[in-house]
Amino acid sequence: MTNRREILQAALAAAVVLPSFGAAAAAPARMPLCKVLYDPRTRAGLAFAATAKRMGAPLHATHGDVTGVWFDELQPQWRQHRTAAAGLTDFHSLFVLDMMARDAGMRAVYIATHQVCARDRFEHRLFGPRDLIRQASLATAGYGWASSAAGIVTSFPDAVSVAAKYSSIAEARNIELTPCDLVSWVIAPPRRDI
């Protein structure tokens, strides 16, 4: 079950402190990202991209259809090396990229849903590594939550497990969203204990 801390009302959450590149040395290894997707048609997308850019992320603008970025960029990359990707998109873009990533032994390891609950107000739910989610929170003012979301995905730890003991990602399979809602996400090769 998702606990109270994991259901974050934007109005109640505190601002996240974004890790800087300078501080990263002391933190766990960050997951390298080959692409960070955003939709420039949305205010949230622009706020997300601005922060991701500050974090040095390789940005890619999408306008709903992810065929091009997957076929021309992600798939060739994933054939060579399994490298993580992230983004703030509609749910469908994540859904198809997650499906296609499985051919490369990758999958969504982190999903945050950002559901519209009123004009410019969003309700957020986070699924992924339990340690990370316990510590994460999203900024409150305006579209600050999108900046926070960018901070989370661009500083995501490397080699995370998706086992239920360590991660709530399986619960994300039951989420119900509308085309108006957004999701931030990380697709990566998970750590498999075999």
């Binding site: 709903g64 259809d65 992810v66 997957w70 076929f71 749910f91 469908h92 119900e176 969203l177 085309p179």
Partner: peptide
Amino acid sequence: TDDQASNFGKPSLQRFWEDTAQFSWD
């Protein structure tokens, strides 16, 4: 355009998106 290119064998993921968005994302 993607629509035109589909007549020459270019696949797409977009059509699936359109069906999904129109009906139910579940």
